Amino acid sequence: MEKDKSMNQLQTEVDQYISQFKEGYFSPLAMVARLSEELGELAREVNHYHGEKPKKSSEEESTIEEELGDLLFVVICLANSLDISLEDAHNRVMHKFNTRDKDRWTRIEGGDEDGSN
């Protein structure tokens, strides 16, 4: 499995996968519904491993990592279908956090201004 893929590479890889099917991307509304479904599955796994609700012996084995991967795939599909660069979106949100919210949280002593150590 290839490591250290850029967000652009992830978006391209997903697009190449989806492009091989006549159906293509689902509608944005259908993908938001799918995101909600996948988020529920992630919440269930987090609750099993870190919450008060242990997994039933009859339930399929799944991991938080798998569920995060499913969420990421659907987010990439949604972004691709709307021609949105997730790298650009990420850069904008990090700029927002580093400017608007720069004094919102208590910094760790010795940390850089940009939030890194």
Rank of each mutant, 00 (worst) to 15 (best):
L29M: 15
K102A: 14
E60R: 09
K3Q: 09
R107T: 06
L82V: 02
N80I: 01
S116N: 12
N8G: 12
F26T: 00
Q16R: 07
K53S: 11
G69W: 02
A79W: 03
K56V: 04
E59W: 12
S116L: 14
I18Q: 03
V74G: 10
D112I: 00
V74N: 04
T12E: 08
S36N: 15
T12L: 07
M1R: 03
E37I: 05
T63D: 06
I108H: 10
L68A: 09
E60C: 11
V32N: 09
N80T: 03
G24V: 03
D70P: 08
G111F: 12
P28Q: 05
G40R: 01
Y17P: 03
V93L: 11
D103E: 13
L68R: 01
V74L: 05
R104Q: 14
S57D: 11
L72C: 08
R100T: 14
G110S: 10
L10W: 04
R34C: 14
V93C: 09
I64A: 08
K22Y: 12
V46A: 11
K102W: 08
S57F: 10
Y49R: 10
G110W: 05
L82C: 14
E2C: 07
I108P: 02
F97W: 11
A89T: 01
E113I: 05
F73W: 07
G24D: 05
R44G: 10
V32C: 15
R104P: 06
E65Q: 10
V75W: 02
S58A: 14
L10T: 00
F97I: 09
H90Y: 13
K55F: 06
K102P: 01
L86H: 02
V93E: 10
D15K: 00
E59T: 04
A79H: 02
A30F: 15
H48T: 01
I64D: 06
V14F: 06
L86S: 04
R92L: 12
H48W: 11
G115F: 09
G40Q: 04
D15R: 04
D70Y: 03
N80L: 07
Q9F: 05
D88E: 13
R107F: 10
Q11V: 01
V75S: 09
V46Y: 11
K22L: 15
A33M: 14
H48E: 13
L39K: 02
N91H: 07
S57G: 09
G111P: 06
A79L: 05
Q20I: 05
T12V: 05
L42M: 08
S57C: 09
A89C: 10
C77L: 02
K3Y: 10
D4K: 03
G115T: 02
S19H: 07
I108T: 06
F26W: 14
V46Q: 11
S62K: 08
N98K: 14
L29E: 15
R44N: 13
L10E: 00
Y25K: 04
L72Q: 05
Q16K: 12
L68D: 02
L78W: 02
G115I: 01
I76S: 02
A79V: 00
L72R: 02
N91M: 13
D15F: 07
D112L: 13
E60Y: 11
E52Y: 12
E45P: 03
S81V: 01
E87S: 09
L10M: 12
K96H: 15
D83N: 15
D83R: 00
H95F: 14
